[in-house]
């Protein structure tokens, strides 16, 4: 798959965002177009997974809106992402923490990583 990396390079997939992984709590600032106006909205939640590589990499963020879980999938190369802030590095044992979907309240907490 070397040639795919050449393509990634050609389209300049530089990592402009801070490092984050599953279990981290992040805030995604993303641009929304309404007619001609553009405004920035935030989506704050726990990263469930990072999927794929290169140009087609995506990440899933889950947050609780009231008592309903909301998940959003962002392509990492999306031009609509303004910035990403990492609020908390979580300590998790796996790369995909789908078990979080079944948990609510106190059980859905993730321990913070201590360096």
């Amino acid at each position: 798959m070397d040639l795919m990396k050449v393509v990634d390079k050609e389209y300049n997939v530089e990592n402009k965002f801070p490092k984050f992984n599953s279990g981290d709590t992040i805030t995604v600032h993303y641009k929304i177009k309404e007619g001609n106006k553009e405004r920035i909205q935030q989506f704050r939640g726990v990263v469930l997974q990072r999927k794929g590589s290169g140009l087609s990499e995506t990440f899933t963020v889950r947050k609780m809106s009231g008592n309903v879980g909301v998940e959003r999938i962002f392509p990492i190369t999306s031009p609509f992402i303004d910035k990403i802030e990492v609020t908390k590095h979580g300590k998790v044992r796996r790369a995909r923490i789908f078990y979080l979907r079944e948990l609510t309240g106190k059980k859905a907490r993730i321990k913070e990583k201590k360096f």
């Binding site: 798959m1 990634d8 140009l55 087609s56 392509p75 190369t77």
Partner: peptide, 14 residues
């Protein structure tokens, strides 16, 4: 054929 991927164009479409 090498493979498939996706890119964002000028309009912001994937």
């Amino acid at each position: 054929k090498v493979g498939m991927t996706s890119v964002f164009n000028e309009e912001g479409k994937n």
